[in-house]
């Protein structure tokens, strides 16, 4: 395993930063550095799926990845940031202010090559609609941790229909208590159990 991939998979924060900076200074291709980081996140995701890692490791990995990405981003712009898999608009729906799960989904989507627009928490339906129109995103990801927000997810998806863009966007939902029944009730297209499965759904949406 590559040194950088290994450092990320083992959640060695300082080591990852040093390696990224060193490799940039040595003139390594930024895209290759990014690929190593993505491989590291893949391993983290796999370990999570296999019960070896839990929330704390996921949040740490997302944090390390985001910090590395900040260092890398300016260089990437210069050399073209590679092929994007698709654009995703994401946020926690109105009435809910939880964000841990949403931020994990963002990190894993980014590490898998998606372009992500994060609207934060307590986001009104019209704000989602406006951002989708502005960016031309084809995926909407809605997060809600508490049971009472299922209705708000439905209202948000209805707002897409009202705005005439429901057909252009695939919607995935996530949070506590979501299942196929909630998907049916809210009018979404799919639900994700965790950050790793959210990536699989987004990939399905774009193929």
């Amino acid at each position: 395993m590559n040194e950088l991939t290994h450092a990320l998979a083992e959640l060695e924060e300082d080591n990852v930063q040093e390696l990224v900076e060193k490799q940039i200074a040595q003139g390594r291709e930024p895209m290759q550095i990014l690929d190593n980081l993505k491989e590291g996140m893949d391993i983290v995701g796999k370990r999570f799926s296999e019960n070896e890692y839990f929330l704390v490791e996921l949040v740490m990995s997302a944090d390390i990845f985001n910090k590395a990405l900040e260092i890398l981003q300016p260089k990437l712009l210069k050399t073209q940031s590679g092929e994007k898999k698709g654009k995703v608009v994401i946020g926690t729906v109105k009435g809910d202010i939880h964000y841990i799960g949403k931020n994990l989904v963002i990190a894993f989507l980014k590490s898998n090559g998606f372009e992500v627009y994060d609207l934060g928490v307590d986001v009104a339906p019209e704000t989602f609609v406006a951002k989708i129109k502005e960016t031309g995103a084809t995926i909407l990801a809605l997060s809600g941790l508490i049971t009472t927000t299922h209705d708000v997810m439905r209202e948000t998806i209805e707002a897409l229909s009202t705005a005439g863009i429901r057909g252009k966007v695939k919607v995935m939902i996530g949070g506590c208590d979501v299942n196929q029944e909630v998907v049916d009730r809210t009018g979404a297209d799919a639900f994700g159990r965790d950050a790793v499965s959210a990536v699989e759904i987004a990939k399905d949406f774009t193929t």
Binding site: F54, V56, V59, D63, I97, Y99
Partner: peptide, 18 residues
């Protein structure tokens, strides 16, 4: 105090799971 609005709630919460 509304916990979820507290700065760095996510980091404090996940560390609390240890």
């Amino acid at each position: 105090l509304e916990l979820a609005r507290y700065e760095n709630f996510d980091k404090i919460f996940v560390r609390s799971t240890l």
